[in-house]
Design a protein around this nucleic acid. Sequence first.
DNA 1: CTATGTAAACAAC
DNA 2: GTTGTTTACATAG
Length: 455
Amino acid sequence: MDINESLQWPSGCDLSFSQLSQEPSNYQMTQQYTPDSSALYNYTAQRLPYRSSYNMTYSPTSTESSCPRTYTGLDLVGSVGSMNEAYPPSAYLLEPQKSQDMLDVSSHFAPGSMCQFKDDFEGQCLPVMKSADSNYGHSRFDSDIGMPNSIPTPEPQVTPIDICKSETPHEDANVDKEQPYAQLIYRALMEQEGHTMVLRDIYNWFKRNTDKATDKETKGWQNSIRHNLSMNGAFEKVDQPVGDAITREEAKKGFMWRLTDSAIREGVKSTTRYRSKLPNKRGCRSQNPAPQRQASGAKGGQAARKAARLRRSERLRDTRSVPMHKGDTYPSRPGPSYTPFDNFTPSDLATGYPASPYYCHSEMDFGTPIKQEALPSSFGQNLDILSGQTYPDSPQGLCSDMHYLLPYSPEEPLFYGSGSESGSEPMTPPSQDYCAMDTSMPQEPACYTEAGEIY
DNA sequence: CTATGTAAACAAC
DNA sequence: GTTGTTTACATAG
């Protein structure tokens, strides 16, 4: 990572958090969590039984430290070592919920962060999640345990997600289920100095901060994390630095995963973006996929449906339960939420419009997709393999949220996408033949040779 | 048609 | 066994 670049990020994003001073008082939670905090605590406590079922390997008493989480940040900020002392161990500045805060946050969120467009953060419970840069250099360890130089974390540990739930902790218990893996991983990494974690700690982060890990199947969510890490260009592998903080044994456990510079600046993009759009090397899909494959796909689909139902119900409930106040600008609605347009400046647009799939929902993003009709007719995605029932085609929903943008800046490009860094993506392994076009750079289609060169 | 989730095959360690 | 990559398949929007 180019440290200079990373340091430029806050200014580039117009991180004008008024609270982002280094006054000691600002390292405290500005919201007093009583009585809400008690509810929050209760909620957190409620989750313990779930988590406890997953802590066989990583029990709180374990002394195992799976990851040296300090060195990467140190490495990265080594040239600006003073930053290490710049911020005390307050990962987040939690602020009272008020509409004005929402506006501030939505316009200063890490650009492209998918979460700003999720319904999760609509309404009145928008978390104020400081970017990692706001505490750059300080240690906020993800693993519950074992870091010799870790700073004790007060219990209950309050996370942005928890804050989101604080209003109605019981009903909002599943709020994080609305966030895709890629976004959650992004958030996990953004919390870390150096934006770097090892897989194991990402697991731990999920256990603590999400409900993904509380489902019955433990294998799936980990697999999904790995899948997202591999497939999403926002995440890159970096070698674990060799140092006294890390043993050779630990180093063997795998790479560290780091947010790419562009991901830090622009947020995580969809995973699908980075999937190869060319026919797979193994040739055409088999006429008769393995029954296990079919079953797996069915499970995935059912899980997706379940999640979608949750999202729907959350949305419906939010719509009903969150009244409009005078200060509110938009009612809850399905789809992305935005800062009021009149608070935007052109530079906000340039830097603030994310490369969210909500925006970059264009087939031009991905080159020539595989034509559905090229697949065997038996592989229509409308076939329910379990029931044998077929369904009508789903409606074409591209850019369904466009109407939220058009009134604002009809002349402005809608897709700033990944901006000038688009050339660095996709991150699909160069071993794959790949040619992708990104709408953000229509004049420079990113076509890659097998060697990874752009031509 | 894309985004996403899940499972699995497979390789490397 | 864990980690990482890739593919297959399903569902929602």
